[in-house]
């Protein structure tokens, strides 16, 4: 399995996801069943590509940006499916599918392939949990973001329970990913926190989410203010994930493994 096979797997998965997402609009018991079957099948197809890449490259595919996008796509669709199962939120599957398609399209056009091996600095027990926990939190927070945008546009608060739950779980994963990173940083670099550009943007993102939860808790009726903070936090999250590379001063970052 190499990146050449990506288009086959991504195409197959995309077909299953789109069909599943379209079916989720029909509100019958039968269509609900088939939505779940098709969507799960799509995740399995995409997941088998990731697994294959892992086995054949003999290292976890978490080093290059292209590989990280694979995980994001996978977790985004998984989080979308779980949200649909738990809260039956309409629109979540189509939205998650659109985002997943965008990311797998970027991966088809610009996979940023590296015949890369695992550098000594990445050989640590913290490597896999640090990356996967973060990716899962990004995906959950992306689902919550999509629902927040829909809520703000429609000025309805029906989606709030789902947003609250998704953001709470997403934030706790984000926190755990960040703290695993800081314990790892102490082992690898000698400091828990060094204000490396990625760390700085993780702190900004984290504080924005704390602010969001604080507003949600102290003023539950101020849904709109909270929603706007949530959207700003999501923008910060994108900068933390990849956008920081384009900011001044990021070239000397400690997190640049996939050059």
């Amino acid at each position: 399995m190499t990146w050449n096979h990506h288009i086959l797997f991504a195409g197959g998965a995309a077909l299953l996801w789109i069909t599943g997402a379209v079916l989720s609009f029909c509100r019958t018991q039968k269509s609900f069943f088939w939505t779940i079957v098709l969507y799960t099948a799509g995740i399995l197809v995409y997941g088998s590509f990731v697994a294959g890449l892992w086995v054949l490259q003999k290292r976890p595919p978490m080093v290059t940006m292209g590989e990280i996008r694979l995980w994001y796509t996978l977790f985004l669709t998984l989080a979308g499916l779980l949200t649909f199962l738990r809260w039956r939120s309409p629109l979540i599957l189509p939205l998650a599918t659109v985002m997943a398609l965008v990311f797998s399209l970027i991966n088809t056009v610009r996979p940023q392939i590296h015949t890369q091996v695992l550098a000594p600095a990445l050989q640590s027990v913290f490597f896999i949990p640090h990356v996967t926990v973060y990716m899962f939190s990004y995906a959950l927070l992306a689902c919550a973001f999509l629902l927040t945008v829909v809520m703000l546009l429609r000025s309805k608060t029906k989606g709030m329970p789902a947003i609250d739950a998704l953001s709470r779980i997403g934030f706790s994963f984000f926190t755990i990913g960040m703290l695993l990173g800081s314990i790892w940083a102490r082992q690898a670099w000698g400091e828990y926190w060094a204000w490396d550009p990625k760390e700085t943007w993780a702190a900004i993102t984290w504080l924005l989410y704390v602010l969001y939860f604080h507003i949600r808790k102290s003023k539950p009726q101020a849904v709109k203010t909270a929603g706007i903070v949530f959207i700003i936090a999501f923008v910060a999250l994108q900068i933390c994930w990849y956008g920081y590379r384009y900011l001044p001063g990021a070239e000397a970052g400690l997190h640049n493994y996939s050059l």
Binding site: A119, P120, A121, L122, A188, W189, A194, A252, G253, L254, H255, N256, Y257, L259
Partner: peptide, 12 residues
Amino acid sequence: WLGIGLQNRVQR
């Protein structure tokens, strides 16, 4: 690659 990161650390 003593970790590109570690290298940057020296400059830092």
